[in-house]
Write a protein that binds this DNA or RNA. Structure first.
Length: 238
DNA sequence: AATACAAACAACCGCAATATC
DNA sequence: GGATATTGCGGTTGTTTGTAT
């Protein structure tokens, strides 16, 4: 017996996700947590395969994702890590916790690969600062706000929709930067990633800090939105 | 203003690894 | 221990958007 597809092919919707679909997925994950993706289409009524749901969540809707332009530091880090690790995007992504592997991969393929090829003979990039410049770290707040923004325009806000972000179980299980690599690269991580420490301790610290930051952001926006401050919440999310 | 082309991004596909029964 | 289910990962493709002609 061969491997069965993750879902029936018939009736499965493909292509870009709509705001409504995003909301349904976010709402479901907030209630049930990520995982058991196979049951997501069944339980939500989404005409998407489980894999598509997982990918959408992982790459776009998951809390803590930073979107938008890559900073110079991030670029440099990606270039160095790619040189070291090759196209192991998931591994590289662990050093940029707020970027997805897909995002990094896309950025590499569209920007950095060419640049590196072009600058092969150029001097190496300057060393990374130990104090990363503040960046406009978006979180799920922005991701969700974007989809809500579109959704609010086309739907009644009274509609049964998102559930508050009350928990953040989404911490990649393999966030364990190799500290040897860190020292090799001459970098230090932002405060959310502790200095060399036992892997477990660092993961706990990371989880705690990450969790806290997201809660701060998610609560303010989502609670405002759900408690009636839709417009102001949307405009203040920037 | 219209068209062609390129770049950027989102999503899909297939395989591999891991978990569960 | 083997079969099956689930999840993760990397490569690739499709669509959208921006720019040049």
């Amino acid at each position: 017996m061969g491997r069965v597809p993750c879902c029936e092919k018939m009736g499965i919707k493909k292509g870009p996700w709509t705001s409504e679909e995003d909301l349904v997925l976010v709402s479901y994950v907030q209630q049930n947590g990520p995982g058991n993706w196979r049951s997501v289409p069944t339980n939500t009524g989404l005409m998407r395969c489980s894999k598509s749901c997982r990918l959408r969540w992982t790459n776009y809707l998951r809390p803590g994702i930073k979107r938008g332009n890559f900073s110079t530091q991030e670029e440099t880090l990606i270039i160095q890590l790619q040189a070291l690790l090759g196209n192991r995007w998931a591994a590289i992504a662990t050093y940029l916790p707020q970027r997805t592997d897909n995002d990094i991969k896309n950025y590499w393929n569209t920007h950095l690969k060419k640049r590196v090829a072009k600058k092969d003979h150029d001097p190496p990039p300057p060393p990374l600062s130990t104090a990363p410049t503040p960046t406009t770290y978006a979180s799920s707040t922005e991701n969700i706000s974007r989809l809500m923004e579109g959704w609010v325009r086309s739907a009644s806000p009274g509609k049964d929709s998102a559930v508050l972000v009350r928990d953040d179980p989404i911490i990649k299980k393999d966030i364990h930067p190799t500290y040897d690599l860190e020292s090799f690269l001459g970098i230090s991580y932002p405060s959310i990633i502790p200095s060399p420490a036992p892997a477990e301790a660092s993961e706990i610290a990371l989880r705690h800090n990450h969790h806290y930051q997201q809660q701060q952001q998610s609560f303010s926006f989502l609670e405002n939105w759900l408690l009636g401050g839709t417009t102001s919440a949307l405009s203040s999310s920037d």
